[in-house]
Design a protein around this nucleic acid. Structure first.
Lengths: 214, 214
DNA sequence: ACGGGTTTCTAACAGAGATTAGAAACGTGC
DNA sequence: GCACGTTTCTAATCTCTGTTAGAAACCCGT
């Protein structure tokens, strides 16, 4: 029997800790090599186990993927919403957008969260798995749509734009960072700042009024 | 023996035409399903052949991938450079950027070119294959770097930005369109226009001086 | 030290996919 | 109608991966 497997903390059962180790190993492998080239043997080795032992913790490879996908989107949702809400209820909608952009970049580039592995393999999953997680992703998309809508209603956004296209382009710029960002040359925060400037104010010289961060 | 296989046109040998059919089928499959979930049998079926017959035209699956990758980056390079050069030598550097953005989006969203398949599978390839094509991709990156550098030298770009970060964020926004764009709701040109506006001028209301297209 | 539940290992199986060799079919100039 | 080079098919091989069953090792309270 498999244990109930709550989120693993220090006091958790051995099983829960091993399970977490497996998820981490898998996420790390996926982040580096994509979905299909990673084998259960790879994951097990990284986690210090034999391939067959994974089946004590997960019913199948798909089950393992599911765990990572959920954790990843969850991390993004939580991080972004917290960052926005930390500004308080009456905050400037552009400042809220800036906070969301920064939070998204940070979580996507962090190694601990599984958001990066998530993005990396999203496009590679069999349709069956992807559909199982569509709802969660839609929720995240709706969150961003609301951010943009509020900003537009406040008159902060130019009115010649289709907000859903803007949203996809924005998230694209942010998500793609996982493909090229390597620690060292510049920090995730710097990337986030660049992204916010570019998306909100544009790269062309010529003052757009809002430049300071909230 | 395999024939020399030039680019296939109508007058080409039967072999060359079949080869092209295979490449097209493979690119279409990759664009839809990613790299590893596409089997040689799938590709062969789409091309109207048996799996084994592919080996008359390609030495291996990797060889086939290589053909698609080269064609894809080639298409992007050609399309973008042509669009920029069509503006003439003395064109406004921001207009050149706008043209490059539009051309990149168009080629990436076109079904015929293999650029979309290319992007889709880039992150999923075994390292060996990817490294073989790094040089070509670097060349494309250098082209964009030059576009941005010229614009910056002309004083058209705000000076608080790291241009290589801007470049990656920009290409990210454009490349990610392959993940969400579906024909119907709006045209690739509209997406391109939104991307250019967002990247160059920002989405926040408040006049940035350059809005008209070249 | 013992016993029972928990966790991991070992050694297999089944299926799929890339690849190959050789046979068949095709097409074309004579 | 034939011979020969080209193109495709068929059937088999070989390797790899997910998966499973059962044996071993581990852990811990008594």
């Amino acid at each position: 029997m498999r244990s109930v497997a709550p989120i693993a903390d220090r006091s958790a059962s051995k099983s829960a800790r091993t399970r977490q180790r497996i998820v981490d190993a898998a996420a790390a492998a996926f982040r580096r090599h994509g979905y299909a080239s990673v084998t259960l043997k790879d994951i097990a080795t990284r986690a210090g186990l034999q391939a067959g032992s994974l089946y004590y913790h997960f019913d199948s490879k798909e089950d393992l993927i599911d765990a990572i996908l959920s954790a990843g989107v969850d991390a993004a949702i939580t991080a972004t919403r917290d960052a926005v809400e930390a500004l308080g209820p009456g905050a400037d909608p552009v400042a809220r957008l800036r906070a969301a952009i920064a939070a998204h970049v940070r979580v996507v580039l962090s190694e601990e969260s599984h958001a990066s592995a998530n993005l990396r393999i999203l496009g590679q999953l069999p349709d069956a798995i992807r559909e199982r997680h569509l709802k969660q992703q839609r929720a995240y998309g709706a969150f961003w749509a609301a951010l943009l809508r509020d900003a537009a209603r406040a008159g902060a956004i130019r009115d010649d734009l289709d907000l859903s296209v803007v949203r996809m382009l924005t998230l694209g710029a942010l998500n793609w960072t996982t493909e090229w960002y390597r620690a060292g040359r510049c920090s995730p925060s710097e990337v986030a700042a660049h992204a916010a400037t570019m998306i909100l104010d544009g790269i062309v010289r010529g003052a757009s009024p809002r430049r300071r961060r909230g």
